[in-house]
Write a protein that binds this DNA or RNA. Structure first.
Lengths: 117, 117
DNA sequence: CGCAGATTTAACCATACGGTTGAATGCTAG
DNA sequence: CTAGCATTCAACCGTATGGTTAAATCTGCG
């Protein structure tokens, strides 16, 4: 199994797309919505006061990052979350965990001040 | 201390700034660099073939997200990582962990159809 | 067929991005 | 004071973003 283990070398442009997609409160909100349950575009758009066309653009951005998948279903379509690409983003961020979890920062401060003063 | 109780509501614009800052390969690379050790602006810029002014702009974006801190030191300055804001981003993403960790994805694939892309 | 509903596309607008070059600023050293 | 180095600011450029409204597309249905 573990079909996903095939390629795990941090796609470059992919991360750009994912982080960019997440850099907007409306899009993050949309993701929360479709995570709850798959929705149609109209359903997704309803809570926001922006036009449907604007939401359609947001969906395109999310789709570009592969964070959502669409299933055409007759005259409408169902949008569902595809969280997998977030994993790469999360893993990227995770490398910096030690920088916030430990007092390493304070330690570094000491070392730096000593060595370059 | 006791700063923990203070933050309970994931600042919205903050996340925008952090994700936006991370949505660029050069900036991510800069972060990796200053994570290794604090650097001056000139040092940071050297590896890239863009102008110093361009790097200065990138630093401003990173600073806006509070991902770096600058310490003015005479005629130059020292830039160091401040990874803390990444934590909020990581926590945001983490909510979706279950969506990629389970076989839910595989299940979804089956339900959707066999899309070989 | 032909219309209604769901979405996208097109055209347009203001603003932001990422990059450039060149001038300006700030600090240290002669 | 002035030269020099480090960094930013200013002005400009082309493209992307996020938003709008209006027209176009696609689909199911009476």
């Amino acid at each position: 199994m573990v079909k996903s283990a095939a390629r795990r070398k941090t796609p470059p442009a992919r991360l750009d797309a994912v982080f960019h997609a997440l850099a907007d409160a409306t899009r993050r909100s949309i993701l929360r919505g479709v995570a709850e349950r798959p929705k149609t575009v109209g359903e997704i758009a309803r809570p926001y006061r922006v036009s449907l066309a604007a939401v359609s653009k947001h969906l395109k951005v999310l789709e570009r990052a592969d964070l959502i998948r669409r299933e055409k279903r007759g005259s409408f379509q169902i949008v569902r979350l595809n969280a997998a690409p977030m994993r790469a983003a999360e893993e990227w961020i995770r490398r910096y965990e030690r920088f916030w979890n430990r007092q390493l920062d304070a330690l570094q401060d000491l070392l730096d001040r000593e060595d370059s003063r």
